[in-house]
Amino acid sequence: MTITFSYLVTTFFTSHLSAELGLSDNSIASYSDCMKLLIDYVCKRFTIQPETIDLSTITSELVLDFLHSLETKRGNAPATRNQRLAAIKTFFHFIARHVPELMQTNERIQAIKLKRTEHLPPPSLTAEEVDAILTTPDQQTLIGARDAALLQLLYNTGARVQELADISMSDLHVGSAPSVTVTGKGRKTRAIPLWQETVDAISRYVDFRKQEGIESEHLFINAKGDPLTRFGIGRRVVLHATTAANHCPSLQGRSITPHTFRHTTALHLIEANNDIGVVKDWLGHEDIKTASQYLEVSIERKRKAIEKLPPPDGGLPPESPQWRQPAILKFLNRCSRQARYVA
C-alpha cells in the first residue's frame, strides 16, 4: 500500500488526535484550521491540487516560509504562529512513525524554534467589576434569567467557555452540597462546588424554562431552543460587559470575554488564600505551573495596593537609598558624620 499525504492527514485526524490523544472537538478543529492553511499554502506555491501533494514537498524550509507568511500576510501574532507550529510538529511526529524515511525531515521541523512572545499577565476583573456585570441582566425575563445564571456560573466555576456550553441538566447537583460536573480537555470531568447565589440563579432560570414549557437536556439554550454555543455565550458576555461599563467606568474600552472570567476566578481564589493545588484542580489545569501565573498577578496587585497606602513614618517619603542620593546630599551626609566626632 502506498502511503499518501491524503491518507496520513485523514489517519492523523481520525485515529491519532481523537482516539490516541483524546483531544476535544475544539482542539481538533484548531489542528484542522492549521492543516487547511498549510495545504492551501503548498497548493498555491506549487500550483497543484491537494490530492497531488507529495510528502517530500513539505520541508523544514517550506514550514518556515509558511510561518513567515502567517505573520506577514495574515497578520498572525507570534503566539498564533507558535500554535500553528506546534500543530505541524505534532503532525510530522506522527508521520515519522509511518514513513521512517521522513524521520530526518521530522527532526529538522522539530528543531524549528518558537518565537518569543511578550509575557503579559492574564486579564482579570476586580470584585466590583464582576458585580457590575452580574447585576446587568433583567432577571424578570427568560433570557435575562438565563444570562444571569450563565454569568454567575461562569464566575463560580471559572470554566472554559466550551465546558460551560456543554453542561447538561444532569450535570447539576443541587442537594446539600451543590456542585456541577464539567467535562474539560481530554474529556476529563471535574466537580466544582456551587455557591448558594449560583444555585439560586440557576433555579430561577430553570423555573422560567418550565413556565415556558421548554424541555431540553442542555442547560443553556438560545431563543430558538437550540443549545447555546460558545460563540453565543461570548456574545452575551460582551453585551453585558458593555452595558455594565455605563455605570462602571473601569470597564470602558476593555475587551471582556468568557476567558476573562476564567482568569478572574483563578485570581480571586488565590487572593482568598486558597492553595495553588486547589486552584489547579478547580480550573482543570494539567500542570500546576499554569495556575502559578496567577500567583504572580496576585503579588503584583498587592504590591500596587500597598503603594497607595501612606508610608508608616507619618506620611513622609522614605529616605532614598544611599546610592541614589544626589552628590550634594552625599556631601552633607559626610559633613554630618564628621560633626559627630567633634568634641
Rank of each mutant, 00 (worst) to 15 (best):
N333D: 04
P312E: 13
F12M: 12
Q196R: 15
C248Q: 09
K210G: 11
H240R: 03
T11H: 07
I270K: 05
S336M: 12
F13S: 00
T80C: 04
D147G: 15
R254H: 08
I306L: 14
P311G: 15
Y205N: 01
Q110Y: 05
P311E: 13
S24W: 01
S168G: 15
P50C: 00
L219G: 01
S255N: 14
D171V: 04
A339C: 10
K185H: 10
T257E: 08
G175F: 08
L114W: 03
H285R: 01
S320V: 12
A245N: 09
M169K: 01
R262Q: 04
E307K: 13
I233R: 00
D147P: 06
L134H: 09
R45G: 01
T157G: 04
K73R: 09
Q83M: 15
N222W: 05
N76V: 08
G22M: 06
G22F: 07
H173R: 15
V278E: 10
S292L: 14
S27F: 12
A245R: 02
I58F: 01
T265F: 07
I48N: 10
G158P: 09
S27V: 09
P249L: 08
G158L: 09
V278R: 10
K330F: 06
G186E: 03
A245T: 10
K280P: 12
D281P: 14
K289E: 06
S6C: 03
H268D: 10
R230L: 00
I288N: 05
S124Y: 11
L150N: 05
D33W: 03
Q338E: 12
Y31K: 06
D65Q: 11
A339P: 14
H259C: 01
W323G: 05
F92V: 06
T157H: 07
L120H: 07
T135M: 12
H247I: 11
F92I: 02
L102A: 09
T126D: 15
K73F: 04
Q139W: 13
G277D: 11
S6L: 00
T183E: 06
R324Q: 02
F5Q: 07
Q338C: 04
D226A: 07
P121L: 12
H119K: 15
D166V: 00
D138K: 12
T141Y: 02
T105A: 02
V278H: 10
W323V: 06
P249S: 04
E215R: 11
E71I: 10
A339L: 05
T11L: 08
E296Q: 10
R146K: 06
I221N: 00
V279W: 11
D25L: 08
E197Y: 13
E296H: 15
